[in-house]
């Protein structure tokens, strides 16, 4: 087993257990910090695949900005979790329905993914990550989807401002 594969398995273990911890914990701040760890480890997987740009973006957006956003949301809402261990209730009346939904989704995922043949390479192909080429692809071949995304985001932004200013 190559070192790369070993690192991949170690990272996968951390990512999966971190993701499980996020949904299982009762302390929402712990979930936020574990989210940060999990996202950083996913960035490490990108680094392992020589996708340096993706790794940096992953850290900047998911580990940095999204964590900041979640912290802000917690700051603005009345969060009940405190460092002394008091948690919030994460249970409600919808147990049966949510179990059925999750089990159904799992069944679909298994049905789709298990018959596939997955090619496992011992080592990742060494491709130099080319930011200039990526930029050229995004801003030349895929300029229309890119602009559509920006318009949708702008619409969302304006919508939020309109909703937030409703009281005037």
């Amino acid at each position: 087993m190559s070192g790369q594969l070993l690192a991949f398995w170690a990272l996968s273990f951390v990512i999966l257990s971190g993701a499980l911890y996020i949904v299982m914990t009762k302390n929402i701040m712990h979930a936020v910090f574990m989210h940060l760890l999990t996202m950083s480890m996913i960035a490490a997987v990108y680094g392992l695949l020589h996708a340096d740009f993706m790794a940096a973006m992953q850290v900047l957006i998911y580990a940095g900005a999204v964590t900041a956003m979640v912290v802000f949301a917690l700051m603005l809402t009345k969060s009940q979790s405190r460092p002394d261990g008091a948690g919030i209730a994460v249970d409600n009346q919808q147990r049966g329905a949510s179990f059925l939904t999750a089990a159904g989704f799992l069944a679909v995922v298994i049905y789709v993914l298990v018959p596939q043949k997955w090619a496992v390479h011992e080592a990742a192909p060494v491709v130099k990550s080319d930011v200039a080429a990526m930029g050229a692809i995004i801003f030349k071949s895929y300029i229309l989807p890119f602009e559509v995304i920006s318009v949708i985001l702008l619409a969302a932004l304006i919508g939020v401002i309109v909703l937030a200013r409703k009281e005037d």
Binding site: D52, F53, A56, V59, L60, K128
Partner: peptide
């Protein structure tokens, strides 16, 4: 290759 992003991130 991406030093600027690396530092900011």
């Amino acid at each position: 290759d991406i030093a600027v992003f690396f530092v900011i991130a």
